[in-house]
Nucleic acid binder design. Sequence first.
DNA 1: TTTCGTAAAATCGTATACGATTATATGTTT
DNA 2: AAACATATAATCGTATACGATTTTACGAAA
Lengths: 219, 219
Amino acid sequence: MGLGIGDIQTTKNTANLVADALRSAIVQGKLLSGQSLKQDEIAAEFKVSKIPVREALVQLQAEGLVSMIPSRGATVAELTLIEVDEIYTIRVAMESIALRKAIPFLTPKEVIEAERILENIDHETDMTKWAELNWAYHETLYRPSKMYRLIQITKNLHNNVARYLLNNYLDKTYLEESQRQHRQLLENCKDGDINAAIATLEHHLGDPVAIFAEILGKN
Amino acid sequence: MGLGIGDIQTTKNTANLVADALRSAIVQGKLLSGQSLKQDEIAAEFKVSKIPVREALVQLQAEGLVSMIPSRGATVAELTLIEVDEIYTIRVAMESIALRKAIPFLTPKEVIEAERILENIDHETDMTKWAELNWAYHETLYRPSKMYRLIQITKNLHNNVARYLLNNYLDKTYLEESQRQHRQLLENCKDGDINAAIATLEHHLGDPVAIFAEILGKN
DNA sequence: TTTCGTAAAATCGTATACGATTATATGTTT
DNA sequence: AAACATATAATCGTATACGATTTTACGAAA
C-alpha cells in the first residue's frame, strides 16, 4: 500500500510525538545547528524514558535534521551553504516533476485551498507559522500528482532549509516578492501552463539560493 | 558536516548492524513484501533485545523498506507498480542531475573503477551481488558530483526497486542489454558528452519500467 | 452457519537498571 | 607551562521486566 499522505494514521506512539516536537524545534530554529541532543535531557524534558527518545532521534537522522555518532551522541545537523545549494537543486527538480504531473489534475478544490492559504500567509506575522503555511501552499499544488514519495522527500528537504530561511533571510521585501511569485504560480497552474509554472517555480526557489550566496560572499 | 559518503563511520551500534542485515534480506528478496517483521523473532534471531531491533525498524521505515503501524507491528513495505513508476521517474531526474554535475569532474580514477566493476558484473552469476555491483557502478559515476544527499536518496530508491528487479525481471537478454547500456554510458561520460550520457541513462532506467508495465498488462 | 462476545495468547511499547564507552577533571612528570 | 596518565563523572547502549494493546481461539447466541 506504500506511504501516501491519506493513510490512516492510527495513534502515534511516544517516539513519534517526541520526533514531532524535536522536528518543530529544529525547523523553527529553537534548537540551533550543532547543538547536542542528550538523550537523558530530552527524556526528562518530555517526562519519558530514553527508549522512545532514541527512536525519535533515529527518525530525525533519517530526515537529515539530526546527526548521530555511535556512543557519542546526537546533534542538530549542520548545513553548509554547499549543502543548501544541493538541496535547492534537488527541490527544483522534484517540484517541477510534481507540478508537471499535478497540473492536469488540479481541481477547484485545490485552487480554493491554495488561495485560502495565500491569504493566511498575507496576515501571518509569526515566522514559524509562515514557514508551515508556505509548505502547505506548495504541497496543495503538488498533491494532485499523487506522487506521495516525491512529496515526502521534498517536504524533508524543505524542513532542512527552513532554518536557513527563518534565520538569515526573511525580510518584508522578500516576503512580498515571495507572495507575488506564489500568486503567479497559482495563475500558471489555473491556466494549465506547465512550462510557465515550472519557470515561475525555478525563479521562486532560485531567489533564496542567490541571497544565501551573497551572504556567503560577505563572510 | 552533513551526510557525505566519505564520513568516518566509527563503530556501528547493534541497531545499525540489525538494520544492515534486514536491509540486505529485504533487497535480496529473502524477506517478501508484506511479510510481518516481529520484534521478538528478529531479536531472537540476532540474539539481541528488542530495543536495537526497534531502532533498526524505524531506520528502515524511513528508507521506505518497512511499514510500521503503532502497536500493530512492522511489515516489509509493499510496492505497487504505480509506486515503482514514481521511483523510476524520480531516479531519472536525480541521476541526471548527478551526471550533469559529475561529468566535468570525472577523473581516470573513477573511469578505471567503473570499468573494473563492469567486468565484475560480466562474470557475476549471483543476482544479489549483481544488484550490488550495479549500484556500485552507477554511484562511481555520480560521486564526483559530491552531491552526497542526492546520492543517498537515490540509493534508497534503488534499494526499493531492487526487489522488483531481482524477482520479476532479470533474464540473460536484459543483463546483456543492461551491460551494453552501462558501457555506452561510460563512453558518453569519458567523452564529456553530458546530453548523450543523460539520454543513455534515461533509456537505461526506462527499460525496467516498460517491462514492469508489460507484466502488469498481462495480469 | 454466521455473528458476536469473551478469554487467552501473542505482540508491542517503554520504564528501569546497569554495563560500556566517552568526556572531563585532576594530578604528575617532563 | 605542556604533555601525559589516571580517576571521576557524564553519557550512551541495551537487556530485562512488565503493563498496554492487539490478535487469535473458542464457545454462545442469532
